[in-house]
Structure formats: C-alpha cells, structure tokens
Nucleic acid binder design. Structure first.
Lengths: 205, 205
DNA sequence: CATTCAAGCTAACGGGTGTTAGTCTAGTAG
DNA sequence: CTACTAGACTAACACCCGTTAGCTTGAATG
C-alpha cells in the first residue's frame, strides 16, 4: 500500500496513509481530520507538508503512475520475444495493482477531483502505457503468432483482468506473482494462433 | 444508463439522473442540489419522492443488481451446454455493464455508504452471481473440457474483463453484443483443453 | 363550489468540510 | 546563550452539505 516508501518522515506517512484511505473510502469520502488522525497529527499540521488536499492526491496519483510506467519500460527493455513481453507486462500490472492501486486504477471520481494539468499528465501516462500494449498486440498480429480480432477492445480486456485490487486479499492463497503468471498463461493461450478447429468463433475476419 | 425505465414520472427521472451522476462523480461527489438541478427541480422537492439520499442509492443499486441477477437466471435456463452457458454469461455481463453500470460494478466507496442491511443484500446477490460462474468453471473442470488452474481467481479475472463501463463509449466502433461475443470467444479459447504443446504453463497441477 | 392532497417552492438549520491565522515548542546554528 | 526555524498545536472562518418546516398551487374528487 505504500507509495513512495518514505515511511520515516511525516510527509511519507501522510502519503502512505492517504493512499490507503483514498483507496478504501474514495478521495471525497476521506476527510483531512481522518487522514491526520491516521498519521497521528492534527488536521492543520498537514498543511505544513502539503498546500492542499488535492496536492496530496496529485502526488499519490502521479508518483504512482510514473513509477508504474517507468517500471514497465525497465522491465521490458532487452526482452524481445513477444510472448515473454506480454507475460512480463501482465505480471507487472497485477503486482502494481496489489502494491499501489492508485497507479493503474484511476477512477473517474478521482480524475475530476484533479486540476486540469495533473489530469492531463495522468491521462497521458495511462495512454502511453496502453499504447505499449496496443503495439505489442499489433506486432503479434502482424507476425501472425496471435489472433487479435480488435486491438483496442482486447487491450482493455487485458487491462480489466489485471485490476485485481477490488478482490485481492493479502492473506489469500496465491501471491500476486502467482496470480499474474496464471493470467499471463491464460491470456497467451487465448491469443495463440492455434488449431483452427477450436476457433468456433463469432468473428468474420 | 437508465435503471428502472420509468422516465415519465419524476421519481423515475430522479433515479435515472442519479444513476448517471453517481456513476460519473461518485455517490459522495454528487450533491442533492446537483441531482435536483439535473431533474429540473429544487433540492427539497426530492424529499417528496425519497426519504434520503441514501435511499436513492439503495434503490439504484438493489434494483440494478436484482435485475442483473434475475436476467442471468432467465438467460441461462434451458441452456445446458457449458460453453454456451459461459458465452451467454459473458455477453450478459458486458451488456449489463453498458446499460446500468451500478449492477455489476459496486465500488467499495458505494458499499460503505449503504446501510448494513442493504449492503448485505447487495453482497449476497453479487456472491450468488459469482457462485454461478464458479460452478460453471468447476463443472467444466470436472468434465475435463476446460483447463481451470484456480477457480476463484479465474472467476475474478473473467468478471474483470467484462467491466467495460470505464472505457466503453456509445459511439464506439463495436456494439456491446459484439464486445461480449469477442470476449466470450477469447475466454472460451483460453479455457479449452487443447494441444498440450501450447500449454507452456507456469502451473504445476 | 369546497375539500383534499400530491408535489412543487423558499428559507433556514445544524453539522461537517477544507483551510487559515496565530501560537507554542523543541532542536539546531552561530 | 541567543536566534531561528520546522513543525506541531488551538481556534476559528467561510462555505457547502443533507435535511426539515412551512407555504403555495393546481388538479382530482365529492
């Protein structure tokens, strides 16, 4: 649940607690007094560290999203096999969801609580990530190793699978890595150009 | 976006507008004055139709969820082929998402805004639906027509794909039915017990 | 025509919200 | 030892929220 891993400073604790509360009760459902109480401080003291409630949201969302996106780039560099790239992409998404859900799952509710500039930056980052996935699907389609009826819709479907935060529990039977591997295998099998007999499809080229 | 399709009465319009606003801005992010304005009425007049803001949320969530769940039962009765049952289940989910997103997608934020009784009923309905999907997966596993490494996690993944509301646009290139069919084909292919060579899996029985 | 009542309205209340002003204190630099 | 400052605190402000009380109106009923 941590975001920037500065749990020793007060600023770090604020970000940590805020990320958790925003995730549980929503941005508007969390009051500065609750947040302060969670940090072990009075509400007014929060303003020694952040100029506004919205600024806290911005920090959490943007830091989380940047960390997520940079991590993708690092993770994918030097991997050239398309299947392995897809596998890593999926695992990374699931792991990010269980670490800092604010990264990949920006609800509309949070989006319109942001100022226009931050919102734009956030959307751009998200789009950049989706473009990576789109490109991957397009390449696999071009090389005819994957069956991709509609890139955009499939991209959204894959992202949808990876949003495990609403139901994931830390004490569950599977680790995030195991879940990610399972989904990766599932998706890769669905994508694979296989026995045409199996494709009793409802798509027409 | 409509919920109970009584758009002629004021009560119906309130439900209609509220469902849309709650979906866009969240329950707490929507004020009674905004809602009233959307209906074309003053805030106090809403209380001629509902005793409280929460009562409106309850109506929308429970009605939507009951309609969704009853629809599943109707849709699946008399279909006995497992693959076709799964297909219908997925299509129905996608269509429900584009019709009244409050049915299948109850966020935690909305859940803890409900009174305990309604929350319980809502969770029970959701669990009942998930049990249908679980059972379906279990049957397919038992009959050895599907490869199901972990029922619960796979169930959540399938549900995740179907949550199309955050990105679905009415003027998009595909209809909800087309999207549902695509996802159904995708999932059925991933589930199918196929060529073992393709299953370069990371699961160990 | 008189009565009733559903359903709109205005005005306001009590409480909670994000935020600010100003104060106090403990640790640090010179 | 003194001066300074970061960072906590108390008190309060201005505003917005859900909700209520009480009034008005216009259509339906007898």
């Amino acid at each position: 649940m941590k975001v920037a891993s500065h749990p020793q400073t007060t600023e770090g604790r604020i970000l940590e607690v805020a990320a958790e509360l925003f995730d549980e009760r929503g941005y508007r459902g969390t009051t500065m007094r609750e947040l302060a109480s969670g940090v072990g401080v009075k509400a007014a003291s929060l303003y020694n560290h952040f100029p506004s409630k919205q600024a806290i949201l911005v920090r959490i969302c943007l830091d989380g999203m940047r960390e997520f996106y940079d991590g993708v780039l690092v993770r994918l560099q030097e991997i050239h096999d398309l299947r392995e790239r897809m596998r890593q992409l999926i695992i990374w998404q699931v792991e990010a969801e269980t670490r800092s859900p604010y990264a990949t799952r920006i609800s509309d509710e949070q989006l319109d609580a942001l100022n226009p500039q931050s919102r734009r930056e956030l959307i751009d980052l998200r789009d950049s990530f989706e473009r990576i996935l789109d490109n991957l699907l397009n390449e696999g389609k071009a090389q005819e190793i994957w069956h991709v009826p509609h890139v955009r819709v499939l991209c959204q479907g894959i992202i949808g699978i990876c949003k495990v935060n609403p139901w994931y529990k830390t004490d569950g039977p599977l680790t995030p890595l195991q879940i990610g591997e399972m989904y990766a295998a599932f998706i890769l099998k669905a994508l694979a150009v296989g026995d045409p007999v199996l494709e009793q499809g409802s798509e027409r080229a």
